[in-house]
């Protein structure tokens, strides 16, 4: 074979490329561009937020912004204490997480550790469809179904629009995100760990909670962070169900304005470009961005500390 092969003749053509591969180059450029779009968008958003925000703090003092408890930038005279809408935002988010984390994780544990493969194949896509319901639908569900229901059953009076109803429904909205991503993380835990645990006389619940959950922790935290980011920035549901009157209160039965709902309302009104009201929108947006960023950063640190890496 070797004696007849022309390719192996010593001193034959060089090993250099015989003709250029343009296709490879084009593909590479397209892929780099695709990756660059999201990076560029993020930088663009930060840049767009930065300038009006700096201008905003040229007019309104940082101290007033962060310490005053009067929020009414669209009123006359305007007031710029951001605390009421920050508190409202956190309140709605916390209510949502209290709903979504236990239910989402329970669903993930069921799907990953308990459900038969056939059942999982049916339930998981259904769950993911739930994630595709438009938030405006959830908003009206909160306003016209959940709030009246709560008013019937709770011993205290609820405002027509309130943080409780909005928070609960935001929580329901993000359950599929938590469940689906956490289930992915748990399914990725190697079976050898499960077998090891079962062989040590563990029940299914012990295997799930003491072996699978810690091993999947980084993925589970990632799921929770994504859900948190969606909850803190959720706009439509809170605009519809939680309201727009800004009161400084911790009482979830009251109507309140969150950061996202303020931005939506102010942004869709007739606020003149360049006015202080206009710049306020950007300042609130920047703060929301920073809060989400900090949350991401802190949880990444926490995960590095506590996760049980199996590889």
């Amino acid at each position: 074979m070797a004696s007849t092969s022309k390719a192996t003749v010593p001193g034959g053509p060089s090993l250099g490329r015989s003709r250029p591969r343009y296709g490879e180059l084009i593909i590479k450029v397209i892929l780099v561009l695709a990756a660059a779009v999201s990076v560029a968008t993020t930088i663009g958003i930060v840049a767009a937020l930065l300038e009006p925000t700096i201008e905003f703090f040229g007019t309104v003092s940082v101290v007033e912004f962060f310490t005053s408890i009067e929020w009414g930038p669209l009123f006359s005279p305007p007031s710029f204490g951001v605390l009421p809408i920050v508190v409202a935002t956190l309140l709605v988010t916390i209510i949502a997480m209290i709903v979504a984390i236990p239910l989402g994780l329970a669903a993930a544990i069921y799907l990953s550790e308990y459900a038969k493969p056939r059942v999982r194949k049916i339930i998981k896509p259904v769950l993911e469809v739930l994630a595709g319901i438009p938030t405006v639908v959830f908003g009206f569900f909160a306003l016209t179904f959940v709030t009246p229901l709560l008013r019937d059953f709770l011993p205290f009076t609820l405002d027509y629009r309130n943080a409780l109803s909005g928070g609960l429904v935001v929580g329901v909205m993000i359950i599929p995100t938590v469940a689906s991503l956490a289930e992915d993380a748990m399914s990725a835990v190697p079976n050898s760990l499960r077998e090891g645990a079962y062989a040590l006389a563990s029940s299914r619940m012990i295997v799930s909670l003491r072996v699978v959950l810690p091993a999947a922790l980084s993925g589970i935290i990632a799921a929770i962070i994504l859900a948190f980011s969606r909850a803190i920035g959720e706009t439509m549901i809170v605009v519809i169900a939680t309201g727009g009157r800004s009161i400084f209160t911790m009482n979830p039965a009251r109507e309140m304005d969150t950061m996202a709902s303020f931005i939506a309302r102010a942004g869709s009104g007739d606020v003149p470009v360049g006015s202080i009201e206009y710049k306020t929108i950007f300042a609130v947006g920047a703060l929301l961005f920073i809060m989400t960023f900090l949350m991401n950063y802190v949880s990444a640190k926490v995960v590095r500390r506590y996760r049980e890496a199996y590889e």
């Binding site: 050898s192 760990l193 077998e195 012990i206 003491r210 890496a309």
Partner: peptide, 24 residues
Amino acid sequence: GMVFQKPNPFPKSIYDNIAYGPRV
């Protein structure tokens, strides 16, 4: 008890690996 083909310690400390069985 059972020991498997590929060593499959839990991604926990040596101590916690041994203590796992008695604890559960």
